[in-house]
C-alpha cells in the first residue's frame, strides 16, 4: 500500500500545473524510494520525468511497486477542492482501483476526503541515456519564462546559441526577428538572477517554442532552471524541487537532413 503526506497541497497542485498541458494520463510509479512519473506528450516530441523522493514526504510508506494510473484532468478536478495550505495525504491499497486524497486544514478542524478512480495505463518506459552535455546553463526561471513568452510573439521556433560569452535566444518570423542575450554574470549580489554557463563546446539548437511554453508552467516550483544542451540531441530543462526531487523535460530538437 501507499501512504504519503505533504505539508502543503499547493506543491501537488503546482506539479500538476507543470505537466497537465503536456500529458493527459500517466502512471505515478510508487515504490519505497518515492514517486516517479515518465510520460511523453501525444506527439512524442517531448518527455516529462518527475521524481518525488520518499524523504520529501512525512511520513512516506510504500512497501511494493505500485503503478497508479491517473487521468490528470480528473486529478486536477479533485485538487481544486484542496486549499493551498491544506495538509495533503494520498493513500492507495495494493489491489485497489482508487486513490484516496485527504485534505486537512492546518488547524485540523476541516477534513475532506475524495476518491479518484484509477485506470490501467500501458505506458512505454524510455531509456534516457546518461549524457555529458556540452553546455549547461543555469538561469532565473522567471527570465526563461519571459524570453519564451516574448519570442513566441515572433515565431513558433526558437534558436538557442551558447558560447562562453553568454546564451542567446532568437526567433525569426513574418513580422521580423528578435533576440535576447544573457551574459554570463560575474559577481552578482542576487544569486537567483545570475546566469552561469558551463561550456565544453559551443552549441546551436532549434526548438519548438510551444513546448518551452508548456515547460515554463513549472516556473512557480523553482526560482532557477537549468538548460543542458549538446548539438543534435534533446535539450534537458530541469526545475529542482527543494528537498524533494525534480521536474525534468526533454525536448527533441529540430534538425535538418
Amino acid at each position: 500500500m501507499l501512504e504519503a503526506r505533504l505539508p502543503q497541497a499547493k506543491l501537488l497542485k503546482s506539479l500538476l500545473e507543470a505537466i497537465k498541458e503536456l500529458v493527459v494520463e500517466c502512471n505515478f510509479d510508487c515504490n519505497d524510494s518515492g514517486i516517479a512519473v515518465q510520460a511523453m506528450d501525444s506527439s512524442h516530441v517531448a518527455l516529462v520525468a518527475l521524481l518525488l523522493r520518499a524523504d520529501g514526504f512525512d511520513p512516506y510508506r510504500c512497501d511494493r511497486n505500485l503503478p497508479l494510473g491517473i487521468n490528470l484532468t480528473s486529478l486536477n478536478k479533485i485538487l481544486k477542492c484542496a486549499g493551498n495550505e491544506d495538509i495533503l495525504t494520498i493513500k492507495a491499497s495494493d489491489d485497489g482501483d482508487v486513490l484516496n486524497l485527504v485534505f486537512e486544514s492546518k488547524d485540523s478542524d476541516r477534513i475532506s476526503e475524495y476518491e479518484l478512480k484509477l485506470m490501467d495505463i500501458d505506458s512505454e518506459h524510455l531509456g534516457i541515456p546518461d549524457t555529458q552535455y556540452d553546455a549547461v546553463v543555469s538561469m532565473s526561471s522567471g527570465e526563461f519564462q519571459r524570453i519564451c513568452r516574448d519570442l513566441s510573439q515572433i515565431s513558433d521556433s526558437i534558436v538557442i546559441d551558447v558560447t562562453k560569452e553568454g546564451i542567446k535566444f532568437s526567433a525569426s518570423g513574418e513580422v521580423g526577428n528578435g533576440s535576447v542575450t544573457l551574459k554570463q554574470s560575474g559577481s552578482v549580489d542576487r544569486e537567483d538572477e545570475a546566469t552561469t554557463i558551463e561550456l565544453q563546446q559551443a552549441v546551436s539548437l532549434t526548438f519548438s517554442l510551444k513546448y518551452f511554453q508548456y515547460f515554463t508552467k513549472a516556473t512557480p516550483l523553482s526560482s532557477r532552471v537549468v538548460l543542458s544542451m549538446s548539438n543534435d540531441v534533446p535539450i534537458l530543462v530541469e526545475y529542482k524541487l527543494d528537498n524533494l526531487g525534480y521536474v525534468r523535460y526533454y525536448l527533441a530538437p529540430k534538425i535538418g537532413d
Binding site: 506527439s43 512524442h44 516530441v45 521556433s157 534533446p234 527533441a252 529540430k254
Partner: peptide, 12 residues
C-alpha cells in the same frame, strides 16, 4: 525551420 524530430528517435 528544420523538421521536428521525435523524442523516441533519441531515447529507446
Amino acid at each position: 525551420p528544420p523538421p521536428q524530430r521525435s523524442i523516441t528517435s533519441f531515447f529507446k
